[in-house]
Amino acid sequence: MSATVAPALDVRGVVKGFGAVRAVDGVSLAVRSGEVLGVVGPNGAGKSTLVNIISGLVKADAGEIAYRGVPIHRLSPDEVARLGVARTFQIVKPLRDLSVIENVMVGALFGRRQCRSTREARRIAEEALAQVQLGHRAEAECRKISTGETKKLDLARALAMDPDVLLLDEPLAGVGARESQTLIELIVGLAKSGKAILLVEHVVRVVWTISDRVAVLHHGAKIAEGPPKEVAADDQVMAAYLGERYIREVLQRPADDAEPGVSSDGDGGP
């Protein structure tokens, strides 16, 4: 009777090749409810492909993915989404001809909540927009908002779906320093409220500060996983991935003067 609770998200031995390149090479990861798993790695390490595979957009060549113990790797993206796995995009594709709030309503209507009425969906969308502090732009047209605002919009749409698992693909890219701080606090709060969060992020300092565990991908394979301090102490891994200067100058400074917006060496996002 003492069965262990299945992780919210369980990725096992996932492989994906594009031609001769193995973009994801046998990666296994597990994210439990209430924790943030940071996934880091240089460009081309396979982070985004992994998120695409979990969300069902890309089919893996091999491996299994389970959500609360239920296999999801053969489901279509909308089925995965309706079960309770929501994602955000590195480059957001908002529904351009709709207003900000209508975009978020789509999440409330068709995500796990399956709101039957648009009035109810609007109320949930308003809450989600307030959570990401975008309430004041609710009626704005999507094509007229800034890059930072589209990132918040994307997160609000994912939240409106009422997910158990959140896949955040670089939620801070293109977001200003102050707004980043808001989003970081929100992500931490979401994990505390019981959501399982897989965070892919270029701003390594943020990943190190807010992740409970960190997984390092390199050439599609996982080369390290563990609590941030342990992974950071793995000199070989860190040298291979981050460059020694980064470790010297950034990671070994006290954590409390963390500035979001600092990017790792040669690895800075757009």
């Binding site: 529904l95 001809d97 209507l109 796990r112 749409r157 779906m161």
Partner: peptide
């Protein structure tokens, strides 16, 4: 609901699908 789903699918098929449509 259906009308909004149709609009969302027309505007960004992939994004609509990932929102559960």
């Amino acid at each position: 609901r259906l009308g909004i789903a149709i609009k969302a699918t027309a505007l960004e098929r992939e994004a609509a699908q990932l929102a559960g449509v």
